Simulated assay, not measured.
Amino acid sequence: MEDELPSGGIEVQSGNVAALEARWADCWKPRDVARRLDGISAPWYVAAGWALDLFRGEQTREHHDIEIAVPVGRFPEIRERFAEFTCDAVGAARIWESDGDATGADCHSADVAARARDGTLPA
């Protein structure tokens, strides 16, 4: 997977973990994402930790983020629903910060993290 990622990016050091968790401390719940994506034709699903809790039928721990999976070719359609956010690609212990509108075309093998343009996540 690392061979497919773009060069550059910011390496995440162990000392940066607390700052990254704080950056996404007010993460959305699955219902928030579902409301945002209501009516969209692109397939998507909740993945990772929240997916496990949805399967169990209860929240079992605090979550610092929420992951959704989207086919790369359909990412632009999903991206439109998050127009007020900037998207950062995350993978292989690196972050590629976006200074504009990420389309996902160059980060198909990485996770894409959305945050408000001022660096915060709105409630």
Rank of each mutant, 00 (worst) to 15 (best):
S7Q: 11
D106M: 09
Y45R: 15
A110E: 04
G91L: 01
T86I: 03
G100S: 09
D118P: 04
D38S: 14
Q13T: 14
E97S: 06
H64F: 13
G73T: 03
R31P: 00
P76R: 14
I78E: 10
M1F: 00
G15F: 06
D88S: 13
G73P: 01
G8V: 12
V90G: 10
R36Y: 03
E4S: 10
G8N: 08
V112F: 04
R31A: 14
A47F: 03
A48T: 14
W24Q: 00
R74V: 05
R35V: 09
G100V: 05
W28C: 03
Q13P: 00
G91F: 04
E62L: 06
F55Q: 06
A19Q: 04
A48I: 01
A18M: 05
A102P: 01
W28T: 03
P6T: 10
Y45G: 10
I66S: 02
G100H: 07
T86A: 04
A105I: 05
R61M: 07
V46E: 02
S109C: 12
E77S: 14
P6D: 06
P76H: 14
G119R: 15
G15I: 12
D26P: 00
D106F: 11
W96T: 12
G15Y: 04
E84S: 15
E58M: 07
G100T: 07
V46L: 08
A110C: 15
D32I: 09
K29N: 11
A114H: 15
Q13R: 15
W50G: 00
I95Q: 07
G39L: 11
V33T: 12
S14H: 09
H108F: 08
T103R: 10
C87R: 13
A22E: 12
L5N: 08
W50E: 01
R81Y: 10
M1V: 03
P6F: 07
D32K: 14
A113N: 10
A116C: 13
A123Q: 14
R79W: 08
A19T: 05
A123L: 13
A113I: 00
W28S: 01
T103A: 03
G8L: 03
L121W: 02
R31V: 10
S41P: 12
A114P: 15
D53T: 11
H63E: 01
A83E: 12
S7P: 00
K29V: 09
I68R: 01
D88G: 08
V12Q: 11
L20P: 00
P30F: 01
A25Y: 03
E84H: 15
A114R: 15
L5H: 11
S14F: 06
G100N: 04
G9Y: 02
D88M: 07
G9T: 02
A93P: 00
V46D: 01
P30A: 10
W44P: 05
I78S: 14
F85I: 02
R36A: 12
P43I: 09
E77P: 03
W96V: 11
P122H: 15
A105M: 05
C27G: 06
L54P: 03
H64G: 13
P43W: 00
G91Q: 05
A113D: 00
G91K: 14
D118E: 04
Q13V: 11
A123V: 11
G57C: 05
E11K: 15
G15K: 14
E80T: 15
